[in-house]
């Protein structure tokens, strides 16, 4: 019941991930951060099998940072997405593949174009205007289909995100403990205050 959401707009990419760390039916932690900063303008959110997720994400993070240190320049979001795909694809045919699904959001440091990449554990890669992983896909994609527009502002993006989380609260059988929300803009990655305590009544 992990939730990953990503929305691009005119000059930003929003990434949101549920705060609940679960094991079976038990919530172990209600303030989990399922995101990692790869560099100044690229953010990655992950879900999947317990040990694999953080291990893989931090491996990618370390390599992204190593590249930045060696070359005194950051990899672009598209370059990072394709790097992650390569790592995930070789993992897929290894003895013990990583079971991780990812969203990779960023703003190109040169063109300032926002981008969002959807990757599943099979290493299928797609560049999308908005994306979700897990059960959230079934509830949120239709909302996003209706309300998303490529030219939306960050404020409008957060509003659509609220529509999504409201629906998830209404329909998902297990509390996901609210969302960590971050936005990537040309100035870097910023934390977005998000009201997790809003109560949504079921239909």
């Amino acid at each position: 019941m992990e939730v990953l959401l990503g929305i691009t707009g005119k000059d930003f990419t929003l990434i949101a991930a549920s705060k609940a760390a679960m094991r079976g039916a038990t919530v172990l932690k209600a303030s989990d951060d399922k995101t990692r900063h790869l560099n100044k303008h690229t953010l990655m959110a992950f879900s999947g099998e317990a040990g694999d997720t953080v291990q893989f994400a931090e491996y990618i993070q370390a390599n992204a940072q190593l590249y930045s240190m060696r070359n005194e320049t950051d990899l672009s979001p598209s370059a990072l997405a394709n790097f992650v795909r390569g790592e995930l694809a070789s993992s897929l045919r290894s003895r013990k593949p990583y079971n991780v699904n990812l969203l990779l959001g960023g703003v190109d440091p040169i063109t300032h174009k926002p981008s969002l990449y959807w990757l599943d554990y099979l290493a299928s890669l797609a560049s999308l205007p908005y994306a979700a992983h897990g059960y959230a896909q079934y509830y949120c994609l239709s909302i996003l289909d209706k309300h998303h527009h490529p030219d939306i502002t960050l404020h409008q993006g957060i509003k659509i995100l609220n529509m999504c989380t409201d629906e998830l609260k209404r329909r998902l059988p297990i509390d996901f403990k609210g969302m960590t929300v971050k936005a990537v803009t040309k100035d870097g990655i910023i934390d977005i205050e998000f009201d997790d305590d809003k109560v949504v009544k079921s239909a």
Partner: peptide, 8 residues
């Protein structure tokens, strides 16, 4: 076929 292999 499988999207990951299409890309690979």
């Amino acid at each position: 076929g499988l999207a990951t292999d299409v890309a690979t």
